[in-house]
């Protein structure tokens, strides 16, 4: 009995010191997308600042496991050992939306939510040469010719797609949805006038002000990137959609580590260098930590699940 207690005390003492030393080896951040992409760059930038926050010896290594729209990476985070040495980037609503439309080895409960870092609202956007100058004009045209106004989407089952579906529901219209292979293809086709509307993320429109006209931002407030563009809400359509990128750990992270990591991210919220570096890349910093982040993920998951239930896309 005594021996057992002693062993327990020793063990817990050992693990306590182990946490005190954390991190004593490199922390891997699994990115479900290719090197050089938006999420990858984010992981590398945030990783750099996270190293500073965690102390002198900390090192963060990005590991790319691209494929299946990020699913390969998300799955391997979910299945990793929750020892604080494997984290992953997490894209909402994509990561959870795909658990509805195909078989996935994880769900919303497979992760410990550490922090969301950036938020990129979607938009309703047309080409510069388009006759539509406001959301109302566009919706009127859509009402006049149901299912004929073509809307370019970056992919099926992503935030572009959900934006279009939510807009349809809010305005009581039917668009002709055209899923392309990737955001840049959707944008090029819109710029060339081959499709009439796009729902791309705001960051995709930055730098294309001469070619595109953003009619609405799908957020609860105007964006610093486009302060002149009204939100959809201001124009009478209650639609909010965007993509969130953050960091998660496999479920079961020891509390001590979780609070350590969360504290680090809370500090990052006030880091002006990080904010500037992300802004330069077209990302707006939006740090949401811990329990709040979990709730955000669940809300996003519910929206996707609801859309899937009523308008399944395959």
């Amino acid at each position: 009995m005594f021996k057992k207690t002693l062993a327990t005390i020793l063990l817990s003492a050992l693990s306590a010191t182990a946490f005190a030393d954390y991190p004593d080896k490199p922390i891997a951040v699994i990115v479900g997308y290719s090197a050089g992409g938006g999420t990858d760059v984010l992981a590398r930038v945030v990783g750099k600042y996270l190293e500073k926050e965690l102390g002198d010896d900390a090192s963060v290594v990005v590991k790319n496991q691209p494929g299946a729209g990020g699913q390969i990476g998300f799955t391997s985070v979910a299945k990793a050992k929750p020892d604080g040495y494997t984290l992953g980037t997490f894209n909402l609503p994509a990561a959870l939306a795909l658990t509805f439309d195909r078989h996935a080895a994880y769900d919303a409960d497979s992760f410990d939510y550490i922090a969301n870092v950036v938020h990129d609202p979607n938009t309703i956007v047309v080409s510069r040469n388009s006759p539509y100058r406001s959301l109302d004009e566009l919706i009127e045209a859509a009402k006049a010719k149901p299912r004929s106004l073509s809307v370019a989407l970056a992919s099926l089952g992503g935030n572009d797609h959900f934006s279009a579906l939510l807009m349809e529901a809010a305005a009581g219209v039917d668009f002709n949805l055209i899923p392309f292979e990737g955001a840049s293809m959707a944008r090029t086709t819109l710029m060339g006038g081959h499709v009439e509307v796009g729902t791309m993320a705001l960051s995709q429109t930055v730098g294309f002000e001469d070619d595109l006209r953003v009619l609405a931002v799908l957020d609860d407030q105007r964006s610093a990137y486009a302060p002149d563009v009204p939100t959809a809400k201001e124009q009478g359509y209650d639609v909010e959609m965007g993509s969130y990128r953050g960091f998660v750990a496999p479920k079961g992270l020891p509390d001590a580590l979780e609070s350590r990591l969360e504290a680090a991210f809370r500090h990052l919220a006030d880091n002006q260098d990080l904010r500037q570096e992300l802004t330069a890349q077209g990302n707006s910093l939006d740090i949401v930590v811990g329990e709040d982040y979990r709730e955000l993920a669940e809300r996003q998951s519910d929206i996707a699940g609801d859309l899937w239930k009523h308008q399944p896309w395959k």
């Binding site: 494929g67 195909r102 099926l156």
Partner: peptide, 15 residues
């Protein structure tokens, strides 16, 4: 359409 073709359930083949 979102349908998987000749992937035999392998995530690695989805793309």
């Amino acid at each position: 359409t979102g349908y998987e073709r000749y992937t035999f359930g392998h995530l690695e083949l989805l793309d």
